[in-house]
């Protein structure tokens, strides 16, 4: 039986005996009110405002003055912004692909272990995953910076290496480090549901390692892989701490632009437009993920 993550999210309705609810559904509404109010006031309504502001005009100080214009969106095509957008998409794509590949390899290894070892390995993944994001970022300054262990080691070997902070290498390493644990869990959850005998059957039927994975294991892990991609791609675009601390603030991500537009330039409409672009990208990737899952189910 293949228990995939997507299937498990369905609530248990099968085993519940048919019984009239003792308490009226009015109670359910009462219980839901605080949660729904929070989401409405702190997520939905704020997003509506941002959407509205992205079409608004602004005065010379960047304050929203109403009206309706596509100017803010068009301004995003300005070479300065377009360059950051292109760079961010590239970095996010590289980060996602690397996290998916490493996540796949690690998950594939873990599911083959005994339950005790699986627990231990998961614990080893959970600790860095739950460690403070800033700590995980500045650790790389110590590691790669001037006088850090990496440089010391390189000099020991006689390799003349300049301090890696700030550099693009440092940014990339920190991004992978930040997102890898996040990417492993969904893939592992999907893979754990795969019947191990399927792998054996594939091997018995003459599939090599590559074929076993390309035809059996990877397709069955699709929900997890898609989940991992969703948790990595667009969130990478929104990162702003890593480029500042490890990249010297030279090559920026979309997240940096949004922060700058809101807190320094005070150009709300443009900041709002850029935020909407991120939101739309997220929704698009969810839609693509859902379509891929659907296509997979149909072909299965």
């Amino acid at each position: 039986m293949v228990t995939t993550a997507a299937q498990t999210a369905k609530p248990a309705t099968v085993v519940k005996p048919r019984r009239k609810p003792r308490i009226q559904n009015g109670y359910a509404w009462l219980l839901l009110t605080p949660g729904l109010l929070s989401v409405l006031l702190l997520a939905v309504w704020p997003m509506v405002l941002v959407g509205r502001n992205s079409f608004a005009t602004s005065d010379q100080y960047g304050a929203v003055t109403g009206g309706f214009t596509f100017e803010s969106y068009l301004a995003l095509f300005d070479p300065v912004y377009a360059k950051t957008m292109g760079y961010s998409l590239g970095i996010a794509a590289i980060n996602t692909v690397l996290c998916l590949i490493i996540g796949y390899i690690v998950s594939n290894y873990i599911v083959a272990q005994s339950p005790q070892r699986q627990s231990l390995l998961l614990l080893l993944l959970i600790v860095p995953f739950w460690t403070d994001f800033l700590v995980r970022t500045f650790a790389w300054i110590t590691l790669l910076g001037n006088g850090g262990p990496i440089l010391w080691f390189a000099h020991l070997l006689g390799i003349p290496l300049d301090p890696l902070v700030p550099s693009q290498t440092a940014v990339m390493l920190a991004l992978i480090y930040a997102f890898l644990p996040t990417a492993v869990f969904p893939i592992y959850a999907s893979m754990r549901g795969i019947d191990p005998s399927l792998k054996e059957a594939a091997t018995d039927l003459g599939c090599g390692w590559w074929q076993t994975h390309a035809r059996v294991i990877a397709p069955l892990s699709t929900p997890g892989i898609i989940g991992a991609a969703l948790l990595t791609f667009v969130p990478t675009l929104g990162v702003f701490v890593i480029p500042v601390l490890l990249g010297g603030g030279k090559e920026l991500l979309v997240g940096n632009l949004i922060v700058t537009l809101y807190t320094e330039f005070r150009n709300q409409p443009m900041g709002a437009a850029l935020s909407m672009v991120l939101l739309v990208l997220m929704l698009l990737s969810i839609a693509i993920g859902a379509l891929l899952l659907k296509a997979r189910k149909r072909s299965a």
Binding site: A6, T8, A9, Y188, A189, G224, G227
Partner: peptide
């Protein structure tokens, strides 16, 4: 922690009951 991040253990689930796991990542997928 495991249940939250990767869902429940297979052995915890009754064989005929619908899987009842809700984890962070399932919600996202």
């Amino acid at each position: 922690m495991r249940r939250i991040l990767v869902g429940a253990e297979e052995k915890d689930q009754a064989p005929d009951a619908a899987p009842d796991t809700i984890s962070l990542q399932t919600a996202t997928t």
